[in-house]
């Protein structure tokens, strides 16, 4: 019980110090910079869309932007004419990379993808052995959204089979529908809020390209700890 008391009191002590400190008000944000607009509205970031990189109006422009951004990130984006093209495209990768097994999760798109491969599959849904997943050549997941502005995808524990599936295997394959493309980051956050606000998945991850590092002489290397490759199929 002593421990609990200390914890409670430390919380109150810190909050007490904060409240004491805040009795004196601070100069307004950015006031040292005369060029700044002083407009503290209810939510200063609510106009983020007007300042972030532009994304274009039409869906065609946004797909073009996603394609360009994904390429810049060294992700492989394959926009398919229809779902029927997926099995052949997937099989090509599996053959080229000599997959012997892969991991996936239950879902309409991911099931369809898994079924088309005819390889041993580790399903994460009801729990799995991590060592087994580590031996998989790829992880196939669905996602919550593709973001034109960044060329990235959003996954959650619910949409993408848990926390590890999208990051442990060396090749992450995302299967998405065209209507999952959102224009920009504000739209992605709005979508997540709308979809999950009542009960958020314990992990939401914005994945923007395959894992990378520049820690050695600032030279880009892919596949630092996460996937070396990221392929996004969309139809």
């Amino acid at each position: 019980m002593k421990n609990v008391e200390t914890i409670l009191s430390e919380r109150e002590k810190i909050l007490g110090r904060i409240r004491e400190a805040l009795k004196v008000s601070a100069p307004p944000p950015g006031s040292h910079d005369e060029t700044s607009a002083h407009s503290t509205t209810e939510s200063p970031a609510s106009h983020a869309r007007e300042w972030l990189p532009s994304v274009g109006e039409s869906s065609a422009e946004q797909f073009a932007l996603f394609t360009k951004n994904a390429a810049d990130l060294k992700a492989d984006f394959q926009l398919l004419a229809s779902r029927a093209e997926l099995p052949a495209a997937l099989k090509k990768i599996a053959n080229d990379e000599k997959w012997s097994r892969f991991a996936s999760h239950g879902g309409e798109l991911s099931n369809f993808a898994s079924a088309s491969l005819g390889l041993p599959v580790l399903e994460t849904d009801k729990g799995y052995d991590v060592q087994e997943m580590e031996k998989c050549d790829a992880g196939i997941t669905e996602c919550d959204a593709l973001i034109a502005q960044t060329g990235g995808v959003v996954v959650t524990t619910r949409s993408a089979g848990g926390r590890a599936l999208s990051v442990l295997p060396p090749h992450h394959i995302v299967i998405a529908r065209r209507e999952q493309l959102v224009a920009d980051l504000p739209a992605a956050f709005a979508l997540l809020q709308q979809k999950y606000a009542a009960n958020y998945p314990s992990m939401i991850s914005f994945i923007t390209g395959p894992s990378r590092t520049g820690d050695i002489e600032r030279i880009l290397v892919l596949g630092a700890h996460g996937p070396k490759k990221l392929t996004i199929f969309c139809f």
Partner: peptide, 30 residues
């Protein structure tokens, strides 16, 4: 304050910090 504030802060952190549009993984744990 808000979840949606990240729509501004994640790209700004990546741009100022590393010259990236977004870093590779931005993950929210709840």
């Amino acid at each position: 304050p808000r979840f949606s504030d990240l729509a501004l802060f994640l790209p700004m952190l990546a741009t100022a910090g590393a010259g990236q549009p977004m870093t590779c993984y931005n993950t929210m744990y709840s």
